[in-house]
Every structure is written in C-alpha cells, then in structure tokens.
Simulated assay, not measured.
Amino acid sequence: MRAFIFPGQGSQSVGMGKALADASVHAREVFQEVDDALGQNLFKLMSEGPESDLTLTENAQPAIMANAIATLRVLEIEGGISLADKAQYVAGHSLGEYSALCAAGAFDLGTTARLLKVRGQAMQAAVPVGVGAMAALLGADIDTAQKLADASAAEGEIVTVANDNDPSQVVISGHKAAVERAVGLVKDYGIKRGVLLPVSAPFHCPLMQPAAEAMAAALTENAPNAPVVPVIANVTAAPVSDAETIRNLLVQQVTGRVRWRESVRAMEEIGVAHFVELGGKVLTPMVKRSATGEVETSSIITMDDIEALLKSL
C-alpha cells in the first residue's frame, strides 16, 4: 500500500514552486488559481520573497499547500494517473492535513487556499506576539517530553506537547516563560537539547482556542466532502472518511496535538509500505525514524522527481 503525505509549516522557502511552474503549465494553473482565490499575488511572493513575508503564517500556509497540490497535479495530469488509483491513504502534518484533504477531493483548491488564509490569520491573532513560544526537544520521546511540560507549567501558565514528530523529536508549545523554563530543564530530563523555534505564535496548544472557534465558523460555511481515500487525522492518528467527522477533527486540530509518529505507525500497521511526500522533504526522515520496519519513502519536488516516481508506480 501507498500513502501520499503533505508537509506542514516550516517547509516554505523563497523560490518554492518556481522551477515546477517554469516546466509545467499545469503547475502554473494551480498557482494562478490560488492567487485568484486569495486576491493576492502569492506565487510572486513564493518565487521572489521577501522571506520575512513568506514566513508569515497567513502566507506560508496557503503557499505550502499550493506547492504540494501543484506537484500532485503535474504528477496526475502529465503522468496520466489518479491519486485514488495510486494511494490508499493521505495524511499531512498540521496544515498539511488540508493539503491532503484537497488532494483527496474533500475541498476544492480555492476553498482550501481561503481556509488556510483564515487559519493562518486566526492563529496569528489568537495570541499577542511575544506571549507564546514553541521549542523542539531533540532526543526526547513523548513520555519524557510530557513530564518536562508538566513540570514547566506553573502558576496558570500553559506548556504542552504540540507535535509528536518522531521518536527523537517532540515540539512543545505554550506561554513563552513556561516554554523557556522547559528548555532550561532539558538536561535534567535526559533530553539532548531544547531549541526555541522561530515561530510567531504557539500553535497546537490551548492558547489557540480563539483560532479553533474561527475555524469552526469557517468550516461550517465551507464543509468538506467525503475524500476519495481516507485521511489519517492528526488528532486521532486514525483513518477517517466521514465528512462531518473530518470537519470536527479539523477544529480540534488547531489546539490539539499533531500525532505524526503515531500516524506513521498506524499507516504502517494498516499495510502502507511506501510514503510519498509531495512538495517537500521534511516528513520522509520523520517517517523513517518512526516506522518500526522497513518502509520506502519518496520526496517529490522537481520534474525529475516526478518522472522517477512515475516509473516506480
């Protein structure tokens, strides 16, 4: 079995998608459709920067999605394949879950772009800049990270596990002082290193509740359809195909933990042996570290990558 997987925030870079757009009219059509849906020249920002603007959450989220879907569309149209024939599951990391749902037909491209714009704006607005923070714990498993988070939360401050990425990397999120306190305590818990992340808000923690409410409203107006293949949901690490359940899980995802390690293992247990990352190369190392057995991974970014994948499908 095969799963198509989609990267999350942090995978953006100036120049993303440009070579693909230069090589394929179908990629250009995706970027133009996203620009039209948002009423902004996002592709110009993706191509030329500045990086500071591309990194803004409200721009990075739709940009990463657009790049992934452009890659998929070139693969499907120029390769003469369909996702439903070549993948049994889709999954995405945080915002990548929206890319996965778009790829599987739960949302059309324009709706996905607008939802991610709202999501990015709502996440940024939920917590004043400087109040929250996130940190990566390197060499930490989930149980140790949870103990550290519990010990660092004090006097009403929040710090919680936001991303369970793989057996050696967990991300915590919450009030800045509590997260900084946790980073200062890593050695006491046998964790190799704690690194504050250059993010503008504390994602995937209870401080994001205002953003969850904004997404609940947006997803009521733009309800998903049933996907053509099941999506492995971030907050449950389990396959889901029911449209209403997907909507509810997307709302929960804003404040909930990204269970990526568990998602990979769930797919592996189902029988997925080939993980294809579209539009990035961030998730495939996490997949290899999370899988309990031998799995095949492919990172598809360039036309050469697409051609190589088509030969193997």
Rank of each mutant, 00 (worst) to 15 (best):
A3W: 09
F4R: 00
G10T: 00
S13K: 15
A19D: 15
A21M: 05
A21I: 02
D22V: 05
S24T: 13
V25D: 13
H26P: 01
F31L: 12
Q32R: 14
A37R: 07
N41P: 13
N41K: 15
N41Q: 14
F43E: 05
S47M: 08
E48G: 01
P50E: 05
D53F: 10
T57R: 07
T57M: 11
E58C: 00
A63N: 10
A66R: 09
A70S: 12
L72K: 06
L75F: 15
E78I: 08
E78M: 10
G79C: 03
G79K: 06
L83C: 08
Q88A: 15
Y89M: 12
A91S: 13
G92K: 01
H93D: 13
H93K: 02
G96I: 00
Y98Q: 01
L101E: 02
C102K: 04
F107L: 11
L109D: 01
G110I: 03
G110K: 07
G110N: 02
T112K: 02
R114N: 03
V118M: 02
M134N: 02
M134F: 04
G139Q: 04
A140Y: 05
T144G: 14
A153I: 09
G156T: 09
G156C: 10
I158D: 00
V159N: 06
D164T: 06
D166Q: 11
P167L: 09
Q169F: 09
V179R: 00
E180A: 05
E180M: 12
R181A: 13
V186C: 14
G190W: 07
V199D: 11
F203K: 03
C205K: 02
L207C: 04
A211Q: 03
P224T: 10
P227E: 07
P230L: 08
P239C: 12
P239A: 13
V240G: 06
S241D: 13
A243R: 08
R247Y: 12
R247A: 09
L249N: 09
L250N: 00
Q253M: 04
T255P: 06
G256A: 14
S263Q: 05
V264F: 01
R265N: 12
R265L: 11
M267A: 10
E268G: 06
V272M: 11
A273R: 15
V276L: 05
E277C: 08
L278Q: 03
G280L: 06
P285Y: 10
M286E: 06
R289P: 00
A291Q: 09
T292K: 15
G293N: 15
D305E: 10
I306Q: 11
L309F: 15
L310F: 11
S312R: 15
